[in-house]
Amino acid sequence: MAGEPQADCLFCKIVAGEVPATVVRETGTTLAFRDINPQAPTHVLVIPKAHYPDAASLAAAEPSVAADVLREAGQVAVDEKVEESGYRIIFNTGAGAGQTVFHAHAHVLGGRGLNWPPG
C-alpha cells in the first residue's frame, strides 16, 4: 500500500534505523542523508519518510509532503553552503532515468560546476 513501509526498500530501512546513514537533516515527514556514492562534493538525498515509488506518485498522493521534500532540499543547500554558488535538485523516475531505489527521493548536488544538459 502506498505510503506504508516496504520490507524490501533500502530507504524504508534507513527511515526505520535498520540501515545506517549519515543523516544531515530530519523533520516529521522527511529525512536527508549523504549519498554513499557521491557525484559532487555535496550530494545529499532528501526522502519522504512515507514510501512512494517516485516523485509523481508522492506528489499525487501527498502534495504537502512533496513540498516538504523540496523545502528540505533547499535547506540542505543552505546548510551545505552551496545556495549561492548553485545547486541542482534531481528526481530520477524509472530505471531508464537512473532510478535505482524505488522510493521517492531528491538528489541535492552542488559544490562543483554542473554542466547542462546532464546525462
Rank of each mutant, 00 (worst) to 15 (best):
T29I: 08
V76D: 05
P41M: 10
Y52M: 02
K13Y: 02
A66E: 11
A61N: 08
T27V: 09
E18D: 14
N37G: 15
K13F: 00
V15F: 06
I14V: 15
P38E: 04
V44Y: 07
L45I: 09
R71Q: 12
V24M: 07
I47K: 05
L58M: 07
V15D: 03
C12K: 04
V78E: 12
E26A: 11
A50G: 01
F33K: 08
T30E: 08
Y52H: 15
S64P: 00
R25D: 10
H43Q: 11
P53G: 11
L10Q: 04
F33Y: 12
V78S: 13
R71A: 15
G74V: 08
D35E: 05
H43D: 09
K13A: 14
V15I: 07
G17N: 02
T42V: 15
P63L: 00
A16K: 00
A73Y: 04
Q75L: 15
V76P: 02
L70Q: 13
A59T: 13
Q39P: 01
L31A: 04
A61D: 05
I14W: 02
E62C: 09
L45R: 11
V78R: 15
V24R: 03
E18M: 06
V65L: 08
N37D: 13
L10T: 04
R25H: 13
A32E: 08
K49G: 06
Q39Y: 12
G74L: 10
G28E: 11
V15A: 02
V76F: 03
H51A: 10
V69G: 01
E72Q: 13
L31Q: 06
V19T: 09
R25G: 08
A60Y: 04
L70R: 06
Q39R: 14
D54T: 06
V23R: 06
V76Y: 01
P48F: 01
C12E: 05
L45M: 14
T42E: 11
A73D: 08
E72M: 11
I36F: 10
A61F: 06
P20G: 02
A60C: 10
P20N: 08
V65I: 13
V65Q: 09
E26M: 06
P41T: 10
A73V: 00
E26N: 10
P63H: 00
A16I: 02
A61S: 09
V24N: 05
